[in-house]
């Protein structure tokens, strides 16, 4: 039995090197256990993956594209699934990815979908707060479901290239220096590093409650796009219950005044 330990913050290349070696040694998927290392930046537990000298195996690019996303999934079984699929693609069916109702293909597609959604939601739901003298430093605390900050960082470094900012997550923190145009990745920092208020936030709350139309209550549609699991780091969600409870009376009030 071969035991492979990969870095705790997923790196696609680390998995690829290990998988390529195992494939070259003809190790069957059932003969490998894949593990996440547990010490983020500490030395010792994670052996640096050797530079692989195994021959490169050509693999369809749609598998590579999906695997690149899937390694960011929080499911501990992701590496084993990927290796099993790699095995099947190289040994059994090169067109495996086209068999969209194959159980492994479905499982991978679901992982990828979940990772993509998670990476999208960071861009959507992350909120910065400003600290210090203007122009200040913008800090956000965000809790992704998977290891997706890395996939989302190009969005933030492009959009907010001329602001100094930090994004804190439970597994890693990212810091952008506008003068140097440089990104630094550091171990996670406490949520308390993020300020609990911001000068503009009350305007945002005002906007949120006034752009809402009480005559069109559709909470299910809201929840489909913004499930409760995202709420705790979005300041405006504290207003939702109040807006919903008051909606009926506001509409009745408009209608009764109209009659009169």
């Amino acid at each position: 039995m071969k035991n492979i330990i990969l870095p705790p913050v997923p790196e696609f290349d680390a998995w690829r090197r290990a998988a390529r070696d195992a494939l070259a040694q003809n190790i069957h998927p059932s003969e490998i256990t894949w593990n996440d290392g547990d010490d983020l930046f500490g030395a010792g537990t994670v052996a640096p993956a050797p530079i692989s000298h195994a021959p490169r195996t050509k693999v369809p690019s749609d598998f590579i594209d999906q695997a690149r996303q899937a390694v960011c999934h929080a499911d501990p079984g992701r590496y084993a699934l990927l290796y099993k699929m790699l095995w099947r693609i190289t040994r059994e069916n090169r067109a495996l990815m086209q068999w969209t109702t194959d159980d492994d293909v479905i499982a991978l597609a679901r992982m990828v979908k979940s990772v993509r959604r998670d990476a999208y939601k960071i861009k959507a739901f992350l909120r910065f707060r400003e600290v210090g003298e203007k122009p200040g430093h913008f800090i956000a605390w965000y809790e992704p479901e998977h290891f997706t900050l890395g996939l989302s960082l190009p969005f933030f470094t492009t959009r907010f290239a001329n602001m100094n900012w930090s994004i804190l997550t439970p597994y890693i923190s990212a810091h952008w220096d506008a003068d140097a145009q440089g990104l630094t990745l550091l171990p996670p920092q406490s949520k308390d590093t993020c300020p609990d208020d911001d000068a503009t936030e009350k305007h945002w709350l005002t906007y949120y409650s006034h752009i809402f139309n009480p005559a069109r209550l559709k909470p299910k549609a809201m929840l489909a796009q913004m499930p409760r699991k995202y709420w705790r780091n979005m300041p405006e969600t504290a207003l939702i219950d109040g807006l919903m409870t008051g909606a009926h009376d506001r509409v009745q009030d408009m209608i009764s005044k109209h009659k009169a």
Partner: peptide
Amino acid sequence: GLGSLTGGSGICHSFTPDGR
């Protein structure tokens, strides 16, 4: 400068209880 467009269909940054 500030900002970018991602080239896709745009980002929904929040949702109000009217589902919008």
